[in-house]
Amino acid sequence: MQRVNMIMAESPGLITICLLGYLLSAECTVFLDHENANKILNRPKRYNSGKLEEFVQGNLERECMEEKCSFEEAREVFENTERTTEFWKQYVDGDQCESNPCLNGGSCKDDINSYECWCPFGFEGKNCELDVTCNIKNGRCEQFCKNSADNKVVCSCTEGYRLAENQKSCEPAVPFPCGRVSVSQTSKLTRAETVFPDVDYVNSTEAETILDNITQSTQSFNDFTRVVGGEDAKPGQFPWQVVLNGKVDAFCGGSIVNEKWIVTAAHCVETGVKITVVAGEHNIEETEHTEQKRNVIRIIPHHNYNAAINKYNHDIALLELDEPLVLNSYVTPICIADKEYTNIFLKFGSGYVSGWGRVFHKGRSALVLQYLRVPLVDRATCLRSTKFTIYNNMFCAGFHEGGRDSCQGDSGGPHVTEVEGTSFLTGIISWGEECAMKGKYGIYTKVSRYVNWIKEKTKLT
C-alpha cells in the first residue's frame, strides 16, 4: 500500500490518463441519441435557420407576430419608411378606419389613436360632414345658397324668414311668412316636400332668348283662358290664391305678392273693366268669414305684352289694390325667389296649380277651390304637342294621358313649387288646347323671366 501511494504521488498524470480511459469505455446513459432527441424537440425550422439574422431580410411573422416588435424591426421587413409607417399605425392600436367614419364618399386613412378623412370636392370637416359648395344638395341650405369668396357655403332665406341657429334652416321672422300653410287642420295635408338634388348652379339658368321682337298675326285659340281631375282644397291650404270678379264672377285667378299687390295673367284683364279681388276665398257660393274683398285701382301688364300681336306672350300683369290686405292664416303671400332659384325650383319637376275653373272641358265651374299636382314636361315634348308657338318664356306641365289639367277660369292662378315646406311661385296658368285632352298640356308663363320686374313694381313704400 505504501508503494502504491508513492507511485500516485510521483505520477499524477498517469492516474488522470487511467481515469479518462475508464470513462470513455463506459456506456453513456444520461444523453439520448440524435434521433430520439429530435422526437422530443420537434420544432419547425425557421426561415433563416442556421444563418445569422443580421444578414437576412426581415420576416413579418418572425419579427412582429411571434413577439412584439419595434418600429426598427418592422422597418427591416418593409425596407421602406412609408410602408412601415402605414403598417405601424394599425399594428400599434388597430384600424381606426374600420367603422368607416368618413361621410359623403370620403376616404379614410388610419393613424395612431386617430384617423384622417380625405374629402371629395365640396366637403370638409373631420368626417367630411361639412358642405362647402352650393353645387351639392344646395349646400344643405333649406332655401338659398351662395358661395363666399373663400368658396364656403353661405345660406340665406327669402323675405319674412331668418336663418336658424344651425345656419342652414329657415324659420319665420314674421307672423305670416310667405308660402307657408298655417291653418292647423290643413298642415297635415301639406304636399310632399321637395329635397334639393345635386345641381350645376353655374349652368342652372337656361341660355334662352326671349323672342321679344317676333311679330306674329293673332292666333285663334280655343278655350285658351284655361282644375280638371283635381281635388277639393281645404280652407287655408292655398292662402296665396285669390279669385278675380268682373263682368262675371271667378273669371280668373291670381296670387298675393304682398298686402297691396296681386300677380295674374295679362290676358285676364281689360282696361276700363272694374275688377274686384277676393282673398281668403274657399267656396265661392258661401260666406265663410275668411274672405277679404278689395278693388283694383291700377293694372300693370308687362311692358312687352301686346294682345294685338299675341294674347299669351309675356302673359303676366300686376294688380294694385285700393287697401292693403290683412295677412292671416287664410290670406298669405306666395314666396318669389330670384331668377336663378325660381328656375331651379321649376326644374324640380312638379308643381301645384289651383283655381275655381271648370271641372271638365266646357263644363261647370268649381264651387270649392280645386288643386292638382302636375309634372313638368320637357321642352321637346311640349313643342311636338301643339302647332302653336311655345315661346321661351312659357313652359308645359300636365299629363300625356289627359284627364287632369287646369281649365277655363283658372287662368292667372299660381303654379307653385314647394321647397322644404315653403311654396314659391314658378308659373302662372296661361293657356292650353281644350282641357285635359290626351297628348295636350297646360301652358304656363315662366315666372323666372319676370321676377325682377315683379319685385321692382310691387315694392311697398
Score class of each variant (00 low, 15 high):
residue 308 A to G: 12
residue 280 G to W: 02
residue 337 A to V: 03
residue 411 S to E: 12
residue 98 E to Q: 09
residue 376 L to Y: 06
residue 129 E to A: 04
residue 141 C to F: 00
residue 189 L to E: 14
residue 380 A to R: 07
residue 76 E to G: 15
residue 77 V to I: 07
residue 155 C to E: 01
residue 407 C to H: 05
residue 400 H to C: 06
residue 450 Y to P: 01
residue 371 Y to S: 10
residue 403 G to Q: 13
residue 65 M to V: 15
residue 251 F to H: 11
residue 251 F to Q: 08
residue 459 K to W: 05
residue 411 S to G: 13
residue 273 V to S: 09
residue 100 N to R: 08
residue 385 S to N: 11
residue 445 T to F: 03
residue 255 S to W: 02
residue 142 E to P: 02
residue 180 R to Y: 06
residue 13 G to K: 14
residue 130 L to H: 11
residue 232 D to W: 12
residue 280 G to F: 02
residue 111 D to G: 11
residue 3 R to D: 06
residue 377 V to H: 02
residue 279 A to S: 03
residue 310 N to V: 03
residue 154 V to H: 07
residue 339 K to N: 10
residue 67 E to K: 03
residue 397 A to L: 01
residue 199 V to Y: 14
residue 216 Q to P: 12
residue 80 N to C: 04
residue 4 V to S: 12
residue 91 Y to M: 15
residue 435 C to P: 03
residue 123 F to G: 02
residue 178 C to K: 01
residue 69 C to N: 04
residue 10 E to H: 12
residue 151 N to T: 10
residue 314 H to K: 02
residue 432 G to I: 04
residue 8 M to I: 13
residue 104 N to I: 00
residue 215 T to L: 10
residue 420 E to S: 10
residue 408 Q to I: 14
residue 370 Q to F: 02
residue 428 I to K: 02
residue 172 P to V: 07
residue 18 C to S: 07
residue 32 L to M: 14
residue 266 A to S: 03
residue 107 S to Q: 13
residue 316 I to D: 01
residue 404 R to P: 15
residue 335 C to Y: 00
residue 171 E to H: 07
residue 133 T to A: 07
residue 316 I to Q: 00
residue 299 I to T: 13
residue 192 A to H: 09
residue 17 I to S: 03
residue 7 I to S: 07
residue 149 A to K: 11
residue 318 L to K: 00
residue 265 A to E: 00
residue 453 W to D: 00
residue 190 T to W: 11
residue 37 A to W: 04
residue 272 G to S: 11
residue 71 F to T: 15
residue 162 R to F: 07
residue 114 S to W: 04
residue 60 L to G: 15
residue 196 F to A: 14
residue 9 A to R: 15
residue 128 C to I: 02
residue 21 G to K: 03
residue 57 Q to M: 06
residue 272 G to P: 12
residue 372 L to T: 15
residue 16 T to F: 12
residue 429 I to K: 13
residue 31 F to S: 15
residue 147 N to V: 10
residue 130 L to D: 13
residue 191 R to W: 07
residue 225 T to N: 13
residue 287 T to D: 13
residue 307 A to K: 11
residue 188 K to M: 10
residue 115 Y to P: 02
residue 432 G to A: 14
residue 174 V to W: 05
residue 280 G to V: 01
residue 269 V to W: 04
residue 306 N to P: 02
residue 192 A to Q: 08
residue 258 N to S: 06
residue 59 N to A: 09
residue 326 V to E: 10
residue 401 E to F: 14
residue 230 G to L: 12
residue 131 D to K: 09
residue 227 V to L: 11
residue 325 L to D: 01
residue 277 V to I: 12
residue 423 S to I: 05
residue 455 K to R: 11
residue 122 G to T: 03
residue 29 T to S: 12
residue 200 D to Q: 08
residue 90 Q to A: 11
residue 138 N to I: 03
residue 346 L to G: 02
residue 326 V to H: 12
residue 128 C to W: 01
residue 142 E to Y: 04
residue 404 R to G: 15
residue 126 K to T: 14
residue 157 C to M: 01
residue 241 Q to S: 06
residue 42 N to W: 06
residue 234 K to N: 06
residue 261 W to E: 00
residue 340 E to I: 13
residue 394 M to E: 02
residue 32 L to E: 15
residue 84 T to I: 04
